Amino acid sequence: MTEYKLVVVGAGGVGKSALTIQLIQNHFVDEYDPTIEDSYRKQVVIDGETCLLDILDTAGQEEYSAMRDQYMRTGEGFLCVFAINNTKSFEDIHHYREQIKRVKDSEDVPMVLVGNKCDLPSRTVDTKQAQDLARSYGIPFIETSAKTRQGVDDAFYTLVREIRKHKEKMSKDGKKKKKKSKTKCVIM
């Protein structure tokens, strides 16, 4: 069974824990209790493949930012979460993405942009803004509501699919490099 290491990042209060708990335990946590770091595991079937999701729910508070490099190193894919009623959390996505790329030393890291709290009427981040940002990053965008469960499975499952595509691409690139290195030079 394939294991996928997913990391949920975003500013404090955007609903990272609520999304994760909704996926794992099928219930909505409405009281806000700032996370330092929590880890969850769940076995699911995605596109006919049974897999184990190892999900790291991270601290959004700035005082825990020193811990970010460590979990970013171990993560295979990242859910970059903002709240649709919090423009600052949307603007912060850029910083999370840049930090992930720096730590992973790669421009090509599996990510999904997630606009959470889409059940709320007080939207300050337009869907088109988020779609445009995701398009500019070359990553999928999904709106979710941890409260109603809308888009929750889709967000995590899409990230797994992005990781699969990335692994497939990397193995193809690896095979191309191996083929090239088999060419021999004969000096007579």
Results as ranks from 00 to 15, higher is better:
residue 155 A to H: 01
residue 161 R to H: 10
residue 151 G to I: 06
residue 165 K to M: 03
residue 155 A to W: 01
residue 168 E to R: 04
residue 173 D to T: 08
residue 134 A to I: 02
residue 132 D to W: 02
residue 150 Q to S: 11
residue 184 K to P: 10
residue 156 F to M: 10
residue 137 Y to A: 11
residue 153 D to A: 13
residue 152 V to K: 06
residue 156 F to W: 05
residue 144 T to P: 02
residue 165 K to Q: 06
residue 172 K to C: 05
residue 176 K to S: 12
residue 150 Q to G: 13
residue 126 D to E: 13
residue 149 R to E: 11
residue 162 E to G: 03
residue 168 E to P: 09
residue 136 S to F: 06
residue 167 K to E: 09
residue 128 K to L: 09
residue 178 K to M: 07
residue 172 K to H: 14
residue 125 V to M: 15
residue 149 R to M: 08
residue 159 L to A: 02
residue 128 K to Q: 06
residue 160 V to H: 04
residue 180 K to D: 15
residue 176 K to V: 01
residue 173 D to A: 04
residue 150 Q to L: 07
residue 167 K to V: 02
residue 169 K to W: 03
residue 159 L to K: 00
residue 145 S to G: 11
residue 177 K to I: 06
residue 188 M to R: 14
residue 150 Q to R: 09
residue 158 T to I: 02
residue 164 R to D: 15
residue 186 V to K: 01
residue 162 E to S: 05
residue 143 E to I: 03
residue 153 D to H: 10
residue 136 S to M: 09
residue 163 I to R: 00
residue 131 Q to I: 05
residue 140 P to F: 00
residue 178 K to Y: 10
residue 175 K to P: 11
residue 151 G to T: 04
residue 176 K to W: 08
residue 131 Q to W: 04
residue 174 G to W: 00
residue 130 A to R: 04
residue 177 K to P: 14
residue 137 Y to F: 11
residue 157 Y to L: 13
residue 165 K to R: 08
residue 169 K to M: 09
residue 127 T to Y: 15
residue 164 R to M: 13
residue 178 K to D: 15
residue 129 Q to A: 12
residue 125 V to K: 13
residue 165 K to S: 10
residue 166 H to W: 07
residue 158 T to H: 14
residue 152 V to C: 09
residue 139 I to K: 01
residue 137 Y to R: 05
residue 150 Q to W: 06
residue 139 I to M: 08
residue 125 V to L: 10
residue 156 F to R: 00
residue 186 V to L: 07
residue 166 H to S: 10
residue 156 F to K: 00
residue 145 S to R: 11
residue 127 T to I: 14
residue 126 D to S: 13
residue 154 D to T: 10
residue 136 S to L: 10
residue 169 K to P: 11
residue 162 E to V: 01
residue 131 Q to P: 05
residue 127 T to V: 12
residue 162 E to I: 02
residue 188 M to N: 15
residue 161 R to V: 03
residue 164 R to Q: 15
residue 160 V to F: 08
residue 162 E to P: 00
residue 186 V to R: 01
residue 176 K to F: 04
residue 164 R to Y: 09
residue 126 D to I: 12
residue 154 D to I: 05
residue 136 S to W: 01
residue 129 Q to Y: 03
residue 188 M to Y: 04
residue 165 K to V: 04
residue 135 R to K: 13
residue 160 V to R: 02
residue 185 C to L: 11
residue 141 F to D: 01
residue 165 K to W: 00
residue 168 E to H: 11
residue 160 V to K: 04
residue 145 S to N: 14
residue 180 K to S: 14
residue 188 M to C: 11
residue 158 T to M: 08
residue 140 P to G: 01
residue 134 A to W: 07
residue 153 D to P: 08
residue 142 I to A: 06
residue 148 T to A: 05
residue 133 L to V: 08
residue 162 E to D: 02
residue 159 L to F: 00
residue 166 H to K: 08
residue 125 V to Q: 06
residue 159 L to V: 04
residue 159 L to Q: 00
residue 145 S to L: 02
residue 152 V to T: 09
residue 164 R to L: 12
residue 134 A to P: 02
residue 159 L to H: 00
residue 152 V to R: 07
residue 158 T to S: 11
residue 165 K to C: 04
residue 173 D to K: 04
residue 134 A to C: 05
residue 151 G to L: 07
residue 188 M to F: 01
residue 177 K to C: 12
residue 157 Y to K: 13
residue 151 G to R: 06
residue 175 K to A: 11
residue 177 K to E: 14
residue 174 G to S: 10
residue 131 Q to G: 13
residue 174 G to R: 06
residue 144 T to E: 01
residue 178 K to V: 14
residue 154 D to P: 04
residue 143 E to G: 04
residue 185 C to M: 13
residue 157 Y to D: 12
residue 151 G to K: 03
residue 137 Y to D: 05
residue 134 A to M: 03
residue 142 I to D: 01
residue 136 S to N: 09
residue 125 V to S: 09
residue 185 C to V: 06
residue 133 L to G: 03
residue 174 G to F: 00
residue 158 T to P: 01
residue 181 S to F: 01
residue 174 G to V: 07
residue 176 K to Y: 12
residue 145 S to V: 07
residue 131 Q to S: 09
residue 157 Y to H: 13
residue 126 D to F: 15
residue 155 A to G: 05
residue 157 Y to F: 11
residue 150 Q to P: 14
residue 187 I to S: 12
residue 167 K to L: 01
residue 141 F to R: 01
residue 145 S to F: 02
residue 128 K to V: 06
residue 155 A to P: 09
residue 130 A to P: 04
residue 127 T to G: 08
residue 157 Y to N: 12
residue 132 D to T: 04
residue 178 K to W: 05
residue 170 M to C: 11
residue 133 L to H: 05
residue 156 F to N: 00
residue 166 H to M: 14
residue 155 A to E: 00
residue 178 K to F: 07
residue 176 K to R: 05
residue 134 A to L: 04
residue 180 K to L: 10
residue 186 V to D: 15
residue 161 R to S: 12
residue 166 H to Y: 12
residue 157 Y to M: 14
residue 169 K to S: 10
residue 173 D to F: 05
residue 188 M to Q: 15
residue 182 K to V: 08
residue 163 I to W: 01
residue 167 K to H: 10
residue 175 K to W: 03
residue 172 K to I: 15
residue 186 V to C: 03
residue 183 T to N: 13
residue 173 D to G: 10
residue 153 D to G: 10
residue 156 F to A: 01
residue 169 K to E: 09
residue 160 V to D: 01
residue 143 E to D: 12
residue 135 R to P: 02
residue 146 A to F: 00
residue 127 T to C: 14
residue 128 K to W: 04
residue 173 D to C: 01
residue 131 Q to R: 13
residue 141 F to G: 01
residue 155 A to Q: 01
residue 138 G to E: 05
residue 169 K to A: 09
residue 172 K to T: 15
residue 134 A to N: 02
residue 158 T to Y: 11
residue 176 K to G: 13
residue 137 Y to W: 14
residue 185 C to I: 02
residue 176 K to A: 13
residue 153 D to Q: 12
residue 160 V to A: 06
residue 129 Q to V: 10
residue 135 R to V: 08
residue 169 K to R: 08
residue 167 K to I: 02
residue 156 F to V: 11
residue 153 D to M: 13
residue 158 T to R: 05
residue 141 F to T: 01
residue 144 T to S: 09
residue 168 E to L: 04
residue 143 E to A: 05
residue 167 K to M: 03
residue 188 M to P: 15
residue 156 F to Q: 00
residue 153 D to I: 12
residue 152 V to P: 04
residue 158 T to N: 06
residue 127 T to Q: 04
residue 184 K to V: 00
residue 177 K to W: 04
residue 154 D to Y: 05
residue 174 G to N: 06
residue 137 Y to G: 06
residue 188 M to T: 12
residue 141 F to N: 03
residue 133 L to C: 05
residue 158 T to V: 03
residue 129 Q to S: 11
residue 141 F to A: 01
residue 181 S to D: 15
residue 139 I to A: 06
residue 139 I to F: 03
residue 180 K to R: 05
residue 162 E to Y: 02
residue 135 R to H: 09
residue 145 S to C: 12
residue 187 I to E: 15
residue 173 D to R: 02
residue 176 K to C: 11
residue 127 T to N: 13
residue 181 S to T: 14
residue 130 A to F: 15
residue 134 A to Y: 08
residue 177 K to Y: 10
residue 139 I to V: 10
residue 164 R to V: 13
residue 175 K to L: 12
residue 136 S to A: 13
residue 162 E to Q: 12
residue 145 S to A: 14
residue 149 R to C: 15
residue 152 V to N: 07
residue 151 G to A: 06
residue 176 K to L: 11
residue 183 T to H: 12
residue 135 R to S: 09
residue 157 Y to C: 13
residue 167 K to T: 06
residue 155 A to M: 11
residue 166 H to D: 10
residue 134 A to F: 05
residue 130 A to V: 14
residue 129 Q to L: 09
residue 161 R to T: 15
residue 187 I to C: 15
residue 159 L to M: 03
residue 173 D to W: 02
residue 182 K to I: 04
residue 175 K to V: 03
residue 132 D to A: 06
residue 174 G to Y: 00
residue 160 V to G: 03
residue 160 V to Q: 03
residue 128 K to C: 09
residue 131 Q to F: 04
residue 158 T to C: 05
residue 154 D to A: 10
residue 153 D to L: 12
residue 186 V to I: 07
residue 134 A to E: 08
residue 158 T to F: 05
residue 142 I to H: 03
residue 149 R to V: 10
residue 125 V to G: 07
residue 139 I to C: 07
residue 170 M to Y: 03
residue 178 K to P: 10
residue 128 K to Y: 07
residue 135 R to T: 10
residue 177 K to R: 07
residue 187 I to K: 13
residue 178 K to N: 12
residue 167 K to G: 03
residue 136 S to K: 14
residue 169 K to G: 09
residue 149 R to D: 10
residue 162 E to K: 03
residue 131 Q to C: 06
residue 155 A to F: 01
residue 139 I to H: 02
residue 139 I to W: 02
residue 164 R to G: 12
residue 165 K to P: 00
residue 133 L to D: 03
residue 147 K to E: 13
residue 182 K to G: 12
residue 154 D to M: 08
residue 138 G to V: 01
residue 173 D to L: 08
residue 144 T to A: 01
residue 134 A to S: 05
residue 139 I to S: 03
residue 130 A to M: 12
residue 173 D to M: 02
residue 133 L to T: 07
residue 178 K to S: 14
residue 166 H to I: 08
residue 137 Y to P: 01
residue 130 A to Q: 04
residue 127 T to A: 08
residue 172 K to Y: 04
residue 137 Y to L: 13
residue 126 D to M: 11
residue 155 A to K: 00
residue 137 Y to C: 10
residue 135 R to D: 14
residue 154 D to R: 08
residue 129 Q to F: 06
residue 129 Q to T: 09
residue 169 K to F: 06
residue 142 I to V: 09
residue 139 I to T: 03
residue 134 A to D: 04
residue 139 I to Y: 03
residue 152 V to L: 14
residue 126 D to R: 04
residue 134 A to Q: 01
residue 166 H to C: 08
residue 127 T to H: 10
residue 125 V to Y: 13
residue 137 Y to V: 12
residue 185 C to S: 14
residue 152 V to W: 15
residue 142 I to Y: 06
residue 150 Q to A: 11
residue 138 G to C: 01
residue 149 R to K: 09
residue 130 A to T: 08
residue 154 D to F: 05
residue 187 I to L: 14
residue 152 V to Y: 13
residue 137 Y to E: 11
residue 150 Q to M: 11
residue 149 R to L: 05
residue 160 V to N: 02
residue 137 Y to T: 07
residue 126 D to H: 05
residue 133 L to Q: 06
residue 160 V to P: 00
residue 157 Y to V: 15
residue 128 K to A: 06
residue 133 L to I: 09
residue 165 K to D: 08
residue 166 H to L: 10
residue 167 K to S: 07
residue 126 D to A: 05
residue 167 K to W: 02
residue 125 V to A: 03
residue 136 S to Q: 12
residue 125 V to R: 06
residue 153 D to E: 13
residue 168 E to G: 05
residue 153 D to S: 12
residue 144 T to Y: 01
residue 131 Q to D: 07
residue 139 I to P: 01
residue 160 V to S: 03
residue 133 L to F: 13
residue 177 K to L: 06
residue 151 G to N: 12
residue 133 L to P: 02
residue 136 S to G: 07
residue 152 V to Q: 09
residue 142 I to G: 00
residue 169 K to V: 07
residue 165 K to I: 07
residue 142 I to L: 07
residue 162 E to H: 03
residue 187 I to D: 15
residue 136 S to E: 14
residue 170 M to A: 03
residue 136 S to Y: 04
residue 154 D to N: 10
residue 170 M to T: 07
